[in-house]
Design a protein around this nucleic acid. Structure first.
Lengths: 229, 229
DNA sequence: AATATAGCGTGTATATTTTACACTAAGTAA
DNA sequence: TTACTTAGTGTAAAATATACACGCTATATT
């Protein structure tokens, strides 16, 4: 059977741009490579797709190995296949971005052997990256910039309960521009997808803000009606 | 060198959803397969990526073999990699959509040996498709539906000189809804990306409409400012 | 207890954009 | 000349987006 398919040495891999939002900054996870090629360079987390894995499964696995978490929000966004992108042969890489809730942890336990360590790095201050990972990152960032305007992905970067100021912050950092507080709140609440939890922020040394939750149910009911920023 | 990369029998292919607009209908090119698997089935045009081709190059080549044309507008939009999507082994397929100006030809000369013939088929009346091509097509259609709202891709489906009615038609068919003529024209002209050619339609048996051209120069100058429908 | 501090939460007026809607003009064909 | 078919045009009302500033409240400090 298989002999019908033309073959040459080639393989495919997944690379992930894992975004997190913390201390008012948008960050991504980078690993320090432990192996050739690009040993000791910084790189996006990624790996070869297994024989019995779909692409999504492979991305999930990689994210799980990296963070210990399951059910991470992720989305495939582009495939990179330049002939010489990998020095050891033809490797086509399918890129995913993932969005993570950071609860304050600064580092994620690195489980794989292919990395020394994983670190969160502010997207505004990235080191030189291995392979074509700079390009992959840039396209991923562009992607979420577009997507956050119409899709409810900002919530994936926040804890389940969040304040409107925190939410506005995510938008401002990703869109890279200041938004008007009153207008932001008016518009955001007008979509009717936030549930007021009748609960206040804890442990702040000033007036506590109301906590909200993203209501998937209500969002689903919007159907076509698009959120738009 | 290469032995560092884990390998198993696998390969990658390109599949193209080639859109054309003709007689007020949105169509795609389908081929009738000449080989197993799915011999005699309808399928999207596609092929295996060559060893020395980038993905874009491969897609260009496939489109050229199919149509004889070069410089076709195309864009990669998703990669399909379910384990069992191909009965003969692991084949990951990178999907492109392409947009073609149809000048009235009904069929495109099929050059490859892997197809008996290529035909234009109305997207509203497609036959059963081989592999997971139905899914690939649907995602491609969704993609251009989204994209036409913000990007100037409608022009790729029209001859260089077109009337506003023709343009509105493209929008209506792709978005699948009627638009108001006056509002459409007002908005479209307000973007300032159309050049009035001071020229009229020829050979129509009624009042001839003014011809316009998409002005890439002016569009480039808009920069961030997005078209929006 | 009084005061300072820091972020929370709110409303209105204006400008802009979107929507709804129907007739005359121009060219062709009979 | 008439009939037919599509081109081309404007306005008013509604909805949405923008610009803008201050009193409130909880905590921390003295």
């Amino acid at each position: 059977m298989k002999e019908v398919l033309p073959k040459f040495d080639s393989t495919f891999s997944i690379d992930c741009v894992v975004f997190g939002f913390d201390e008012g900054e948008l960050k991504i996870l980078l690993i320090e490579r432990n192996e050739e090629p690009f040993k000791d360079w910084w790189a996006l987390p990624g790996n070869i797709v297994g024989e019995d894995e779909s692409l999504d499964q492979s991305a999930s696995r990689i994210l799980n190995e990296l963070t210990g978490l399951t059910n991470i929000y992720m989305e495939q966004y582009y495939t990179f296949g330049d002939v010489n992108r990998h020095p050891q042969g033809r490797v086509v890489s399918i890129a995913y971005y993932a969005l993570l809730r950071l609860g304050g942890e600064k580092s994620v336990k690195p489980l794989s052997t292919y990395a020394k360590q994983a670190y969160w790095r502010n997207v505004k201050d990235l080191p030189k990256l291995a392979f074509d990972h700079q390009k992959i990152f840039e396209k991923g960032l562009e992607k979420i910039k577009r997507r956050i305007k119409h899709q409810p992905i900002a919530f994936e970067l926040l804890p389940e309960k969040f304040t409107l100021t925190q939410l506005q912050n995510v938008y401002e950092v990703i869109l890279n521009k200041k938004l008007d507080k009153r207008n932001f709140r008016k518009k955001m609440l007008s979509f009717g997808v936030l549930r007021d939890l009748d609960e206040k922020q804890q442990g702040v040394s000033f007036r506590a803000a109301t906590l909200y939750k993203f209501d998937k149910r209500k969002y689903a009911k919007l159907f076509g009606k698009e959120i738009s920023f």
